[in-house]
């Protein structure tokens, strides 16, 4: 295991949204701060810094992680994906993102980054996911604007579209 020294910075190499990046961080630096303030990817948001609200959720080596409860040094060598990576191309939106837009599944959009990461991962890992699974995944997130219902509707529609796309492929 790598030895870390508290008040020194350590080099961290990881893949952020498919691109290799290198930077320095103290062992105590949170992954959320590292992604946002060191690497400059500000799409990931910080809502509570104690793991409840889910706004900071990112994908780390394919699984979900609260970036506010993860240290940057833990992500050394990892593949990190954030909300910036969901759309197929700049100026376009993914099936899930489009569905959010159609159903007004966001208002202020602050919690949305984390919710999209959780639901995108759910629909990828469990293409057959239905309302129960979607509600279950969404239960790890707080949203103060929408009352959640439109998010559930959007995710269910996205699941259906993705299932159809898979059948056609």
């Amino acid at each position: 295991m790598r030895r870390l020294i508290a008040d020194q910075t350590h080099s961290i190499s990881l893949k952020l949204n498919g691109k290799p990046v290198h930077a320095e961080a103290e062992p105590r630096m949170l992954l959320s701060d590292f992604i946002r303030h060191v690497l400059g990817a500000k799409g990931t948001h910080v809502g509570c810094e104690h793991g409840v609200c889910g706004a900071c959720t990112v994908r780390m080596d394919g699984g979900l992680a609260r970036s506010c409860l993860t240290l940057a040094v833990q992500a050394d060598g990892a593949e990190i994906e954030t909300v910036e990576h969901l759309a197929p191309a700049p100026g376009s939106l993914s099936v899930l993102q489009n569905s959010f837009r159609r159903h007004h599944a966001l208002q202020c959009g602050f919690c949305t980054a984390g919710i999209l990461m959780s639901l995108d991962t759910l629909l990828h890992d469990h293409p057959e996911a239905g309302e129960t699974e979607i509600r279950d995944a969404l239960a790890g997130h707080l949203c103060r604007c929408t009352g959640y219902e439109p998010i559930v509707t959007a995710a269910m529609e996205a699941a259906k579209i993705l299932q159809k796309e898979r059948l056609n492929a």
Binding site: R36, A41, K42, G43, T44, H45, V46, T82, V83, E84, L86, A87, G91, L93, Q97, F100, R101, R102, H104, L106, C108, G109, F110, T112, A113, L116
Partner: peptide, 21 residues
């Protein structure tokens, strides 16, 4: 009338700017 929102593209793709951004 449930026209889609102008605001949503940036908010959904992580490019919207909040105070800490």
């Amino acid at each position: 009338d449930v026209e889609e929102r102008i605001e949503d593209g940036a908010l959904l793709s992580g490019s919207a700017q909040f105070i800490d951004d």
